[in-house]
Each structure stands twice: as structure tokens, then as C-alpha cells.
Amino acid sequence: DKPLMPYMRYSRKVWDQVKASNPDLKLWEIGKIIGGMWRDLTDEEKQEYLNEYEAEKIEYNESMKAY
């Protein structure tokens, strides 16, 4: 599988927590909350997800070359 983009990594990490805090919200409403949370992160906080993505992207590209 292709590596997940940084925002999607963050979304997967916080989804269950946001859903548990807001059990009556629809999926798109939860997505909207998470989008706002992502925008509110500092560049340093986002960098963690970007670093994970870049590392996985290198691994993915290497595995595709071998294939």
C-alpha cells in the first residue's frame, strides 16, 4: 500500500478519540472537527507526521524498484 499522507495519519490517530467525545456526530462532522484540529497544529507537531510519511515513502519506492 502507498504511504498515508500526513493529514490522513493524523486523522487515523485522533478519529476514535473525537468520535468517542462526539458520539452523535455524523462522519463528515467528525472529519470537519479533525480538519480544524489539524489546522491548529504547529508546524513542529505536523512535522512528526511528515517525517513518518517521508520515511514510509522511501521504503515504498524502494520496494517498488525491487518489484
Rank of each mutant, 00 (worst) to 15 (best):
R39H: 09
S21E: 13
E59N: 12
Y7G: 03
Y10Q: 02
E59R: 13
G36F: 05
R39S: 09
L27C: 11
E59L: 11
Y53D: 13
I33R: 05
G31D: 15
E56A: 06
N51F: 08
D24Q: 09
G36R: 12
N22V: 07
K2E: 03
M37E: 02
Q47M: 09
Q47I: 06
L50G: 10
I34C: 03
G31M: 07
T42C: 09
Y67H: 15
Y7P: 11
T42M: 04
K46Y: 04
S21Y: 05
Q47E: 08
S11C: 08
S21R: 12
I34F: 00
L41S: 03
A20N: 10
G35R: 14
N61S: 12
I34H: 03
K13T: 14
P6A: 09
S11Y: 13
A20F: 03
E56L: 01
I58T: 12
M64L: 12
P6S: 06
Y53Q: 08
Y49A: 04
S11V: 07
G31K: 15
N22R: 09
A55Q: 13
L41T: 07
S11L: 12
M8G: 09
D24T: 14
W38I: 01
E62D: 11
K2I: 02
G35C: 10
D16N: 08
D43I: 12
E56Q: 07
K19Q: 10
A55H: 07
E56M: 01
T42G: 12
K46R: 14
M37K: 06
M8D: 14
E62A: 10
M37A: 02
M5T: 15
P3E: 12
M64D: 15
E62W: 04
E44Q: 05
Y53K: 13
L50A: 11
D1V: 04
R39M: 09
S11H: 12
S63D: 09
Y7K: 12
I34M: 02
K2G: 02
E45R: 05
G35S: 14
K57H: 06
K19F: 05
M37W: 01
Y67W: 11
I33T: 06
L41G: 02
E62Q: 12
E45G: 04
E54K: 07
G36W: 03
W15H: 07
E44W: 01
R39Q: 14
G31L: 07
Y49W: 05
K46V: 04
K57E: 13
E45V: 06
Q47L: 07
M5A: 15
P23D: 00
I58F: 02
S63H: 07
W15P: 01
Y10M: 03
M5I: 12
S21N: 14
K32F: 03
P6M: 03
E29A: 02
I30K: 02
K65I: 09
D24R: 07
M64I: 08
E54P: 06
Q17C: 06
M8Q: 15
L27R: 14
G35V: 08
K26Q: 14
Y49G: 03
E44H: 09
W15Y: 04
K57S: 09
I33W: 00
K19D: 00
K13M: 12
G35Q: 13
E29F: 00
D43R: 12
S21C: 08
I34T: 01
A66T: 12
K32V: 06
N61I: 14
W15S: 04
Y53N: 10
P3K: 02
W28E: 14
P3L: 04
L25T: 04
L50E: 15
S63F: 06
P3S: 06
P23I: 02
R39W: 01
G31F: 15
N51Y: 06
V18I: 08
M64P: 12
S21W: 05
W28R: 12
Y60V: 13
V18D: 00
V18M: 03
R9T: 09
S63I: 05
A66E: 12
D1T: 06
A55R: 12
P3W: 06
W15I: 11
Q17W: 10
I33G: 02
I33L: 09
I58D: 11
E59S: 12
G35T: 11
P3R: 03
W38F: 04
E59D: 09
L41C: 04
A55G: 11
K2N: 10
V18F: 00
K32E: 14
N61A: 14
L50Y: 15
Y53P: 13
Q47R: 09
Q47G: 07
E54G: 05
P6V: 01
E44N: 11
G31W: 09
R39Y: 06
I33Y: 02
L4S: 11
N61D: 11
L41F: 01
E59T: 12
A66S: 14
T42Y: 02
N22D: 04
L50N: 06
D16Q: 10
T42E: 08
A66C: 06
S21L: 14
K32Y: 02
S21F: 03
K2D: 04
E29T: 00
V18W: 00
K32A: 11
P23G: 02
G36N: 12
S11N: 05
E44L: 07
E56T: 04
D40Y: 01
G35F: 11
K57W: 09
N61L: 09
M64E: 15
R12I: 04
G31S: 14
G36L: 06
S63T: 10
Q47T: 05
W28L: 15
P3Y: 06
K26G: 07
D40N: 14
Y10I: 02
M5P: 15
N22S: 04
M5D: 15
D43Y: 06
K65D: 09
L50Q: 10
D1S: 06
Y49V: 04
E62V: 05
